Computed example of a mutant assay.
Amino acid sequence: MGQGTKRTIGVYGAAGHTGKFVANELRRRGWSPVLVGRDARLHELYPGADVRIAAVDDAAALDRALAGVGLVINCAGPFLETADPIVRAALRAGAHYLDVTAEQPSARAILAQFGNAAAEANVVVSPAFAFYGALADLLTTAAMGDWPKADTVTIAMALDRWWPTPGTRITGKRNTARRIVISDGQPTFVADPPHRRTWDFPAPFEAQEMIELPFSEIVTIAHHVQAREIHSYINLAPLTDIRNPDTPPPRAEDESGRSAQTFAMDVVVEHGNEQRRATAQGRDIYAFSAPLIVEGAERILNGRAKRAGTAAAGELFDAPDFLASLAEHLTVTFR
């Protein structure tokens, strides 16, 4: 599934925290992306680059901004406000679409609404192609291996801290929808109060107190993995950070702009009496999302996606191979 000569990648929200990481990752890999945003400060951030200004509620401006673009990466939240109009603009342009949403309602809506249109346009539309969403989906798909279905999928995430970006704070205030998990094969609201448990991670996290708090990974996994139960937990420590209004935004600790934050993600799939486990460890959930989504974009434009339409990362690519391609940024173990 190629796009001929339409191989330029557009980044919507290139002025934001994650958008900057994505733009820099594209440049590091030799791309000259089209950088799109809602105001003219983009010209100051990226002097000499191909900068285009378009508000999400201006369809004509979006069409001009995506002219000649073969794939657009949407980094501008809240995605409940931006994803729908940018997907529609991408379809009008004949361009693939990826985004970095952690918002369950946005990911569910995009996957449900645009399947036929994306397939007819022969493009990929894949929301939540980031730390939240795609990483757990790829780990789950890789751990499943030759199993056609699983009884349970459990995702456990640990962050040593969480310095939220302004966009994360805005999204948190606006996204008040109740979160879902998969229980008895059906989307089900998280229990109130949420379930708590202890989880043993590899060092340096080790034993952590966890709470059920699912993000877009429930949506991406359930889109193509047959499992009776899919549940997702996060450790308590970073929630204290993000709920504190005085917690500062991420601070660069190296030349790439990454913060000192570290993470671990543990995925356990069970089928009958068998259990398989995949664990990933890395640094800075915002920065890590850049090589993840750019790798996906390159593979799509190089014709390596398995199919067109709406799909999650694990549906589109060979999951173990994709994870191996991120070895510079991610340590993955299977057991």
Rank of each mutant, 00 (worst) to 15 (best):
residue 91 L to F: 13
residue 93 A to S: 14
residue 335 R to Q: 09
residue 94 G to W: 04
residue 229 E to V: 06
residue 160 D to V: 07
residue 153 V to H: 01
residue 196 R to C: 07
residue 93 A to G: 06
residue 289 S to M: 06
residue 196 R to Q: 14
residue 208 Q to I: 05
residue 22 V to F: 03
residue 267 V to I: 06
residue 20 K to H: 06
residue 70 G to F: 14
residue 175 N to C: 05
residue 28 R to Q: 13
residue 58 D to Y: 09
residue 42 L to R: 06
residue 31 W to P: 03
residue 129 F to R: 00
residue 21 F to H: 03
residue 224 H to Y: 05
residue 90 A to E: 15
residue 45 L to P: 08
residue 182 I to R: 02
residue 182 I to C: 02
residue 4 G to C: 04
residue 26 L to S: 03
residue 198 T to R: 09
residue 8 T to W: 00
residue 201 F to K: 13
residue 16 G to V: 01
residue 25 E to S: 07
residue 2 G to K: 06
residue 5 T to Q: 06
residue 264 A to Q: 11
residue 20 K to C: 09
residue 110 I to F: 02
residue 135 L to A: 01
residue 263 F to V: 07
residue 171 T to W: 01
residue 156 A to K: 14
residue 229 E to R: 15
residue 254 D to K: 08
residue 209 E to W: 08
residue 264 A to C: 04
residue 159 L to V: 05
residue 69 V to G: 02
residue 124 V to K: 09
residue 267 V to G: 10
residue 299 R to S: 09
residue 280 A to P: 09
residue 39 D to V: 11
residue 259 S to M: 11
residue 83 A to R: 08
residue 145 G to I: 12
residue 28 R to V: 02
residue 102 A to Y: 00
residue 233 Y to P: 02
residue 83 A to F: 05
residue 295 E to P: 00
residue 210 M to V: 08
residue 135 L to D: 00
residue 61 A to Q: 12
residue 209 E to S: 13
residue 92 R to W: 08
residue 20 K to G: 07
residue 23 A to L: 08
residue 269 V to W: 00
residue 3 Q to Y: 14
residue 263 F to N: 10
residue 84 D to K: 04
residue 272 G to N: 08
residue 295 E to D: 10
residue 109 A to E: 12
residue 307 R to T: 13
residue 55 A to R: 07
residue 163 W to Y: 06
residue 72 V to S: 05
residue 128 A to M: 06
residue 229 E to G: 14
residue 185 G to K: 01
residue 331 T to M: 15
residue 331 T to I: 09
residue 44 E to L: 12
residue 46 Y to G: 00
residue 5 T to W: 15
residue 244 N to P: 13
residue 18 T to A: 06
residue 78 P to F: 00
residue 10 G to F: 00
residue 128 A to S: 15
